[in-house]
Amino acid sequence: MIKAEHLTKRFGLATAIEDVSFEVGKGEILGFLGPNGAGKTTTMRILAGFFPATQGIAVVAGYDVFKQPLDVKRRVGYLPENPPLYSEMKVDSYLRFVATINGVAKSKIETQLEKVKQRCGLADHGKRLIKHLSKGYKQRVGLAQALIHDPEVLILDEPTIGLDPKQIIEVRELIKSLAGRHTIILSTHILPEVSMTCQRVIIINEGRIVAMDTPENLTSRLQGGELIEVEAAGDVERVHGLFKDIPQIRNVSVGPPSNGHFILTINVEGKEEVRHLISRRMIEAGLNLYQMKVQTMTLEEIFLKLTTREEGAA
């Protein structure tokens, strides 16, 4: 549904994102996780067609964002970091305006309006001026605005920011309920949010993707199990299928190489010792083994590690 290939965006000399590639399948929820200024907003703005990428291709719902912007924009609902609201308008007339410019048929506007207001908890707020709403309600209007034309793709930049805990839970439930019919990308810097709502997570830092995984894999590091980090060198291709017949190993991911070395992160179920099996397999496959260590990290630690390692390298 969404495909980003080698996206790079430069602002003058500053590089906001560099070589960002990923895919999102239909009905999937993808979370963008990263510290402030990591390039989440830039990536989302490119996908929403707000500005073009310096390099790379973005395809949304089958259309090239740069070449067929109107076709893409018709199918995308976008909630920017700051909800784009006309404070002097009433909620209803604002939503009607957004519906019209997004091509909702005149006959459907009222039903769509009632539907999104219901969904976003704005049913009693239609006649209120937007400037009189609290921050949380403004955020809801922003969300309603993104949903009004029932888009195939939703791009939500920090959708729960500014909400109180109860509202946060409601919005997360809402987003989850939208999955399946809608393909969703959302960004956040709150870790639990990702594990609660997203099927897949991209961790981004300083404009580069540093990890891409399911939140289960990331959180399994929290609940028992072990992560074994192996530093090795040689032909990376040989790693594929190397540990297939060891039942305790859930999955293996290969990190980006540096100085000819690469890091394998091996997710092991239970506490059973498998390190001797791993080392033997690797040496038999002709790979050089340099380091092996067991990690037990919280999601926060993983996040920090991934994002600070990148800083150290830069």
Partner: peptide, 10 residues
């Protein structure tokens, strides 16, 4: 920031 709304609308 409403330019962002207009610029991402069809």
């Amino acid at each position: 920031g409403t330019m962002e709304l207009l610029a991402t609308s069809p």
